[in-house]
Simulated scan of single mutants.
Amino acid sequence: MQAIYFDKGGASDVLRYGDVDTPLHCSDKQVLVRIKAAGINPIDCKMRAAPDRFPVTFPVIPGCDGAGIVEAVGLQVQNFKPGDAVYFSQPGFNQRQGTYAEYVLVDAGLLAKKPLSLSFEQAAAAPLILITAWEALHDRARISSGQTVLIHAGAGGVGHVAIQLAKLAGANVITTVSSEIKAIFAKKLGADKTINYKTQDVIEEVMHLTAGKGVDIAFDTVGPSVLQSCFSCVKTYGDVVTILQPAADTNWSDARIRNVRFSLELMLTPVMLELEDAKQHQGEILQHCTALIDERKLAIEVAQTFSLSEAAAAQDMLEQQHVPGKLVLTVDK
């Protein structure tokens, strides 16, 4: 089969496009999927740049998100059959391969039926960001109706679905953006207020919008400096969730004094640690989101598509341009 792979870490020029062995045999709880499209995520670039940080095997086929057609199922798989259109997120950890390929073996618990209303390209853009946003807001922060939530980078991949999930939960949403175009995009998704972090002081604006109380939940999708500011934006006894590694010099004093509940969100954990119940939970999240998408309550924004052979250019765009929505690889097969 054709695939994107690399034999060493580095910049995007280490990516190769060529023939690799096609996976053929499903274990009892696996499904063989013929990939129609693969989503591109920042984790793909991090794995390429520093593969030693992850449990991967060379040559590495990158990619977590995929959408395609079931080709074969293992003996214990009951919920899927050949011909089903599915989507999923599975990192290429612990002897697995990623999704930048024509075929991939997937743990059945991670799979869900593809939303009927989405193309394969749209579906491939969705799983990692849906699971990340869902786990952060529902599983970590325990979001509830009537709360006010601050979502950083609301025009980004995780941010743009987090806005929608928060609104579906009945929350009031404040989000940060870097331009008027992105502000319009975020408001279209349901954001109640936007803050341009390039021209406005985020902490001051949040305090103004919440009458000095702070938000119930602050969701960091950016990194250390934004996480630090979250502790000043959240109310006493509020929640802060981040999807990034906190910096070693993070100042926790504000969070400690105000009794903030802090959570880390890493949707890669179930596969990394081989947690079967957690894999099943992620598949169930996608099943629930399938219903929301087909009911037109949840939208996925695809910024641009590339052919599989253009994976290096796609990763370069992701790292350099920060476009609204997601980038996707199409697999012609």
Rank of each mutant, 00 (worst) to 15 (best):
A123W: 04
R53I: 03
D107E: 15
V206F: 07
D65P: 01
G39D: 00
L268F: 08
I257F: 09
C289R: 01
V241C: 02
R142L: 12
I69C: 04
C26Y: 08
T199E: 12
L298N: 03
Y87T: 00
V77R: 04
K8A: 12
Q97L: 12
S179E: 07
I4T: 04
R256W: 13
G18Y: 14
G214I: 11
V14Q: 13
I203T: 14
P115N: 09
A247K: 03
I181D: 15
V33L: 06
P59V: 10
N196M: 10
A248Y: 04
Q122H: 10
A211S: 15
G18H: 13
P224K: 01
V73F: 08
A313D: 12
V14F: 05
A123N: 04
I285P: 01
K213Q: 14
L308Y: 02
V149Q: 02
Q320N: 14
Q95H: 14
S12D: 12
Q90G: 00
T99F: 11
Q287M: 11
A38T: 04
K29I: 08
Q282L: 01
D28Q: 09
A183T: 10
R258V: 02
Y103S: 05
P51N: 05
G18L: 13
E204I: 04
V202P: 02
F120K: 03
Q164G: 05
F219G: 01
N79Q: 15
R296Q: 14
E274P: 00
Q315D: 02
Q30S: 09
V226C: 10
G109L: 05
D249S: 10
V173Q: 08
